[in-house]
Design a protein around this nucleic acid. Structure first.
Lengths: 298, 298
DNA sequence: CACAGACATAAACGCACCTCATTAGTAATT
DNA sequence: AATTACTAATGAGGTGCGTTTATGTCTGTG
């Protein structure tokens, strides 16, 4: 291995360009320099690596063989450097996540915990907001990564389904209804309903589902915050349409009870969203990996 | 990958020596040079790779990680170089030859035998086919070297006449003709003729020759394979136009007999063909030399 | 405290590599 | 056939850069 390694860099470039002049431009050096380098490499290896023809150069059989090794070797060095820069950046950087409070507390907390434990030097910032708001923040670069319900138009986003949410109907344990009865859509619609305000995506989703079945949802009460909704349902104000995953605590404690239904509203997915043309910061990439890797491999 | 690759060579040596001074000796450069190289590498990667202590240096965590990549990469380059030198010394590699079955068995066999005996590590592959087919294979790089009847258009080929073939007319020993009579072109043309199919180059050559003398060849029987032609001629079906060199065995055994002719069809040459702008592999060059060197120096 | 051994630093040197300029071959124009 | 436009190769010369030499600094050791 006495060959000057720089020559391999040139070799690789020329092999890929198939053209010394073009390779020289890629390398930001003169054509002459590249030509000399190739000549030198061929001398040192005592092997013809390229055949010269009028439209450029092409690898000989031996050249092809060597190229495979060189390409792999360069690849290794590159990934080595990449890993290095990643770990370096994970020792000083920040990560800004856009997600709703509920998603954060119900789904993300364990990942945030682990991530912070492993990379204590990374400052984590969480911007709360509903789906369409955090997607806006993502587009404008205010957050590195966002969690949102599957957006209608993917646009410049790359989405990755992470968590499933199920819409269910609940009521306070004392509410005068039959918790053993299996309710139909119509029966549910006739209850005094407690729903989130109309701009909440889960509310819209629910409405859409009922509308597809010819039913109009006419809530008794509309609320802006999920906690209020839970409170009102708990004191027996009516039947609340909520996301099951966000009221697990209340269901377990018995404060709320789920109504049996004859229908099942298709689950909605909370997606990890990133801008599809902007490379992630090391921290963001790492956090995304954390989440993705721990998902049930659907 | 803007890092100067030479630095990795130094890095690897230092990592393995665990000692800058020792590494410098291994690299046959000064301690200062090594020290500066490591410093430069650490700067360019913006990462501490070694921790300095009084007895030398040792890799940091990041350094260890990087070292694995560098070691593998260097290993690849080394084995690449090794393979290259093996090929150069004909200790390995392959040789792909395009030639017709007849040329192979009548002309090439002894060379193949000698070559394989001398360079047993070279894998030899022979692709069979007619002249224009193997020339196509040559152009497309499927074979390193081809043997074909002198092609009409040399194009990007370099050809080298190797073997001469003579077109003659033969018949079975019992065939009712006068084997002492000297036949003219016209007389030959009047026989019931057995010829190869029209796409065979030897057939075309024969036709062309007769046409130049104002005669049209109208064969009784056309065949695709030379062996069939021999069989039919042997059982007295007619007079066959064949290449003398390909029926030597039958002529010697007396199964076929040659008709005397007043004319002599100019011999055709089987040429060794290579692409004129692509350097040969070591194996191909060597085989070509084998063939060329043993020819009667015409 | 002096000494040895290891790495870091400074400065000057000299060559390898680069740039520039020209030559030369081939293909595709007209 | 002459022209144009590619290509790669070659020659010459200047200089950036990695090297060497020399010295400094730190740590552990007798």
């Amino acid at each position: 291995m006495s060959v000057k390694l720089e020559l391999y860099k040139v070799f690789k470039e020329v092999a890929e360009a198939g053209n010394i002049t073009a390779a020289a431009q890629s390398l930001y050096i003169s054509q002459s320099a590249v030509s000399q380098s190739i000549k030198q490499l061929e001398n040192e290896l005592q092997t013809r690596l390229f055949s010269r023809n009028s439209r450029g150069v092409s690898l000989t059989g031996e050249g092809k063989m060597l190229y495979e090794y060189v390409r792999s070797a360069m690849g290794l060095l590159e990934t080595g450097e990449a890993k290095l820069s990643q770990t370096r950046e994970l020792q000083m950087g920040h990560l800004t996540i856009g997600a709703s409070d509920t998603v954060t507390s119900q789904f993300l907390l364990p990942y945030l915990d682990r991530f912070h434990r492993q990379y204590p030097a990374i400052r984590i910032q969480i911007v709360s907001g509903r789906s369409h708001k955090v997607l806006g923040l993502l587009q404008s670069g205010k957050v590195d990564i966002a969690f949102a319900s599957t957006p209608a138009d993917p646009g410049s986003l790359t989405t990755f389904p992470c968590f499933a949410t199920h819409s269910v109907f609940v009521a306070g344990a004392d509410y005068p209804c039959d918790f053993d009865h299996v309710y139909s859509l119509q029966e549910i619609a006739r209850f005094p309903l407690i729903l989130l305000e109309r701009k909440a995506s889960s509310r819209l989703y629910l409405e859409k589902y009922f509308l597809q079945n010819g039913l109009h949802l006419d809530p008794e009460i509309e609320l802006g915050a999920r906690s209020l909704l839970v409170d009102l349902a708990a004191i027996g104000f009516g039947v609340a349409g909520v996301t099951e995953e966000f009221v697990t605590r209340e269901l377990e404690s018995g404060r709320l009870k789920k109504l049996k239904t004859s229908f099942e509203i298709p689950p909605r997915s909370v997606d990890l969203c990133v801008l599809h043309d902007v490379p992630l910061t090391a921290a963001a990439a790492q956090f995304a990996s954390f989440v993705k890797d721990s998902l049930p491999l659907a």
